[in-house]
Design a protein around this nucleic acid. Structure first.
Ligand SMILES: [Zn+2]
Ligand SMILES: [Zn+2]
Lengths: 375, 375
DNA sequence: TAACGTTCACACGGTTCA
DNA sequence: TGAACCGTGTGAACGTTA
């Protein structure tokens, strides 16, 4: 028995026993300001099942009078979190189904086959989602590419976790951690179709001019603020001590680098995927922060293509963030990321200048010569 | 079965079961005063489907007699509100459908008169507004501050409109247009309470590190793409020729600067206020793109305060755009703005390097020494 | 199972035009 | 004038998580 309209009730809704219709009515109207819903009957309507449609104001007033609680209506934020969880579960279940099926049918699990079936599993569209199933595949691939980039470049000739590798010269700093990051980044990027489709020259240009900044951003993913160390997630890579930067690059650069790591911490802790996408976006960037007047920026052969590739990932990042954090938070996050990326560019440039002033090409690994513009 | 004319009914209309025609009849006539509709048959007509057109007075009387409610006819106010809502939804849906890329149709040439009054943009107030009256005041103040910044810094010692001022050296370019923009920008910012409340040191830091980029953004507001010139809106300031940049800064920087101007064109034409807010947001940015190893970035004394000030304007910009352009357009617009601001930073940095390489401090106006980091 | 949200067909306002 | 139409709000039925 609905306390508002006396219709048969379905149970408690927003803290009172109500019917389905009063529940829906309350959810739709309780949060509207009172001057939107005006009473045309001077409040005389005594709501029942037959006249409940006659006066919205009276009906809503009775809802509140009977003690229905608008605080129990989920906020947009809560709805988003819930929806996200549902989406995640759905995808998980579908993947599991698919996995089980594959196992049962005893199909050999070659990479391609699996990829294919993932697509099938995810082909269900969610209309209200900003993220299409195609986007999910792209995101999965990004995750996968990143994981592969680590797996395919395991370290040789260095101690294993939990040993700490001590670095004490600029050359070591460049040839070990920076080189490792760079190699993995390149492997990461090579798995992106948009990058592969670029002209060879443009690939080299982007790598040469953006990689050093990207190394810093990538480092945020493996930085452990608690003890100021760097260690690649889920590998037996050795530990690098952040403090070694002081000896290798000087106090100044140590401070700046560490500040950047710390600024990224909460983003990284909250969502590593965001940073992985930012890496891609910054790769396709034409900022050329590392250019100087003596080394002017080379012209991209197909800058439109680069710009469009970047746009693809900017769009993706935007939609991903909006879906996950809401549009308002996304704005804030992106403004912060941009600020941070600028800071990164600045530190990268300083680092490059420092290395150029201390080292010569023959002291550096081949890739590092190019990254430091010392070739 | 229509209670008025006994024709087949379509359901409840104004609280009674009626046919379509009686519904329309009632809506049209129920609010007219009774002496407008006179009965010519002494009230003898017993309304039915055949004679219902014969006597309006009798038909209306029967409508009321059967209990149709004129209160349920929407008032003009309600109709307007509803129409507005429909309009908004329509826009949203359209954008959602062709989410790919088919906008650009809402760029009316209403840029001119928009300068003065913000309210023209959104004269209709509504309950669901994202923009509060306080926000309106803030927006008005921004417009006013910008106008004042121009008025309070009229040019001296330069020819008047429509003369063109020819520039041919880097020093001229810096000391004239750049200096003018900078002076006006500073006057603009000094009118913002959030800027005034900062510590003196932080004000200087922000100005010193962000102003050059802001000059480029500000220039977009006075750029005339048709003839590649710059002239301050609504003043008798002389014209500057964009082409002079080639002579002063070189082809490279000319091209990049002009590209930025062109990228902003449709934003500027569509809404100058957006750019004015962006100026403020970028002022409060901590990117420090113009730092070098010799001029390392100073630490802000109260970086939280700066961040919060920035947030205030990011919030405001978002709500303003969403209200004016709708949700999806705002996303697109902001992503574009972010990309553009990054390009601006990059060009600003290059410009600074170029000026540093060509000029010495004593060739520059005092403010310019600081902006170019040559003091 | 309780109690949120979501969906979708349909009711009922207004609008258009022959 | 009224048939045909458009778009929002309603509520029964259903989906999901704790
Ligand atoms: Zn009820
Ligand atoms: Zn009738």
């Amino acid at each position: 028995m609905c306390v508002v309209c006396l219709a048969p009730a379905t149970g408690y809704n927003f803290d009172q026993i109500t019917c389905e219709s009063c529940k829906a009515f309350f959810r739709r109207n309780a949060l509207k300001s009172s001057n939107v819903i005006k009473c045309r009957c001077n409040g005389v309507t005594d709501i029942n099942v037959h006249n409940r449609k006659r006066c919205k104001a009276c009906r809503l007033a009775k809802c509140f009078a009977k003690g229905m609680r608008k605080e129990w209506i989920l906020t947009d934020d809560e709805k988003r979190t819930k929806k996200q969880k549902i989406e995640e579960n759905r995808r998980l279940r579908q993947l599991q189904n698919c996995q089980t099926k594959t196992d049962e049918e005893n199909i050999d699990n070659s990479a391609e086959e699996e990829e294919e079936s993932v697509q099938n599993a995810l082909s269900v569209q969610c209309d209200t989602c900003l993220i299409s199933s195609q986007d999910w595949i792209t995101l999965e691939k990004i995750q996968c590419a990143y994981a592969q980039s680590v797996k395919l470049n395991s370290l040789v000739g260095l101690p294993l976790y939990p040993s700490t590798r001590k670095l004490s010269t600029p050359a070591q700093m460049v040839n070990e951690p920076t080189n490792i990051h760079s190699t993995r980044l390149i492997t990461y990027f090579k798995q992106l179709p948009e990058f592969c489709e670029l002209e060879e020259d443009d690939k080299l240009t982007l790598i040469k001019h953006n990689l050093l900044g990207l190394v810093f951003i990538r480092a945020t993913l493996i930085y452990k603020p608690a003890n100021d160390t760097y260690q690649e997630y889920g590998t037996d890579d050795c530990i690098f001590d952040g403090k070694d930067l002081i000896e290798c690059y000087g106090e100044q650069l140590y401070k700046k680098s560490t500040q950047i790591m710390c600024s990224f911490i909460d983003i990284v802790e909250c969502d590593r995927l965001v940073v992985k996408i930012i890496l891609i976006i910054m790769l396709f960037s034409k900022g050329y922060s590392t250019c100087t007047i003596e080394y002017p920026e080379p012209v991209l052969k197909n800058s439109t293509q680069v710009f469009q590739s970047q746009n693809i990932y900017v769009d993706l990042l935007w939609r991903y963030c909006e879906e996950k954090f809401g549009f308002f938070n996304t704005i804030k996050l992106l403004v912060r990321l941009i600020t941070l990326c600028m800071a990164v560019e600045s530190v990268a440039k300083e680092t490059q200048q420092y290395v150029q002033s201390k080292l010569t090409a023959d002291e550096l690994a081949p890739l590092m010569q190019s990254v430091m513009h010392l070739s």
